[in-house]
Nucleic acid binder design. Structure first.
Lengths: 168, 168
DNA sequence: CCATACTTTCAATATATTCTGAAAGAACGG
DNA sequence: CCGTTCTTTCAGAATATATTGAAAGTATGG
């Protein structure tokens, strides 16, 4: 029971890694993000790779991705030549950032393609052709407003949540 | 351009597979689901494995999973000894079913653990201990109502969407 | 019951994803 | 400039995930 902070922090890092996988974020990236989230100071690549036992290459790549997602930013530490990193800590911003990324990369193109298929299947012959069109059109018609809602959430303030909560 | 229905249907099956991956559903399972979604008739395991070029074992396992999720159900076809399968076609039900499954399997346990970590980190010493507690508590406090909202959506009627849409 | 039709299971295999580490590249201080 | 420190890249290795296929298991009609 020597260093309790380190133990509990490690538990958090692991748990965040598990949550991350559910969001399409790999373990290294999620661990790095988690560790930075609960740090009271900026950390360098060496700090992180040592504490999390990751290779230099892996650490470098995933930090870069975190920065490009906007979940982490680089900061300058006076008198240090290395880069230091700090995580965005506002849960709403973290949530919105991840949501935006996934909409952009995965959902948007799929929904668009679905729309094209709905069009292409217009007026196909036979029971089979008609069912194809009917279902694809239905799915597209369902997903389109859902996506629009998600985009509005991404652009909104965090208080939108309590507004939604009220109608539920 | 021989059989247009088959071509377009194949496009849809592939696209649904891609969307499925974004939701933690593997390609075989997503393909089977997609093919059944746009079928005007119940299909047997043999129908499916042949059309989608999947092995028997794979088809069997993934159909069973789809049934256990509640996305597909078995039906009896008169005069046939084989099992036949039919997909739930209402987009709202499909959406809610997948959401429920993921909440249950991935989100709920992670959020619970986060809550326990928030508790365990109460009153830790030092700047580091305090930051750990502060951030974990903040994340948990953010995710908890979000999860509650998701659970309410899962239990609601599809018209809840237009109600939410109104406040966005 | 038996023969046959059908389904499930699971060890082996194939595929996809992630991670490592060393070499190449960049930036900095003097 | 030059030596040093720091960062990135990327081919190969390791790991994780998905798929196959054949054997074992189960149900059905006769």
């Amino acid at each position: 029971m020597e260093n309790k902070v380190q133990d509990i922090r490690a538990r958090f890092v692991d748990e965040w890694g598990a949550l991350g996988s559910a969001w399409g974020i790999n373990r290294s990236m999620a661990s790095l993000h988690a560790r930075l989230l609960v740090s009271s100071e900026p950390m360098s690549m060496d700090d992180l790779m040592e504490e999390l036992s990751l290779s230099r290459g892996n650490t470098s790549t995933n930090l870069r991705d975190l920065v490009s997602w906007g979940l982490v930013r680089q900061v300058v530490v006076r008198g240090e030549r290395k880069q230091f990193f700090v995580a965005e800590k506002d849960p709403w911003k973290v949530f919105v950032t991840i949501l935006r990324e996934r909409l952009h990369r995965e959902i948007d193109p799929a929904v668009d393609t679905l729309g094209r298929i709905a069009q292409a299947s217009e007026g196909l012959p036979g029971k089979e052709g008609q069912e194809l069109h009917r279902v694809v059109k239905g799915l597209h018609g369902f997903l389109l407003p859902l996506r629009a809602m998600a985009h509005r959430v991404v652009g909104a303030e965090s208080k939108i949540l309590s507004a939604i909560s009220r109608v539920l």
